[in-house]
């Protein structure tokens, strides 16, 4: 496989997705969970830009990427707000301790 910028981007997407999901599977800290979600979103943003590059629609995908960043910032903010509220009400950020709902 030759090392073209495109391939680097693709590898970057795959790597970020893998890292993000690996993190979500292993971390128990809510703050880290939100960070992992952000990593996943960054993978998606990179993916969109790469796709725009491949198909020659860079103009469209760039504006999409910006929209995605905005949208996911909102999600991140809400996630953080939840995390804070959980810390206050439950007194922990460990997701494994947040498992009262089961069965």
């Amino acid at each position: 496989m030759n090392i073209s910028p495109l391939n680097i981007c693709l590898l970057g997407v795959i790597g970020l997705v893998a890292a993000g999901f690996y993190g979500l599977l292993t971390t128990r800290n809510l703050i880290k969970v939100v960070i992992m979600l952000q990593i996943l979103v960054k993978a998606a943003v990179l993916g969109l830009i790469t796709a725009g590059n491949i198909s020659g629609q860079l103009y469209v995908t760039q504006s999409m990427a910006i929209t995605v960043i905005v949208a996911d910032t909102i999600v991140a903010v809400i996630g953080m707000a939840f995390a804070i509220q959980i810390r206050r009400q439950v007194g922990t950020l460990d997701t494994n301790e947040l498992s009262s709902l089961r069965g």
Binding site: F21, L24, L25, T26, T27, R28, V33, T95, N96, L98, S99, S100, L101, R102, G103
Partner: peptide, 17 residues
Amino acid sequence: LHLTQTGQLNWNILGIV
């Protein structure tokens, strides 16, 4: 099957992955 609903976030993500 009820045991598979552990309520743990990591486990839930495992379902997706």
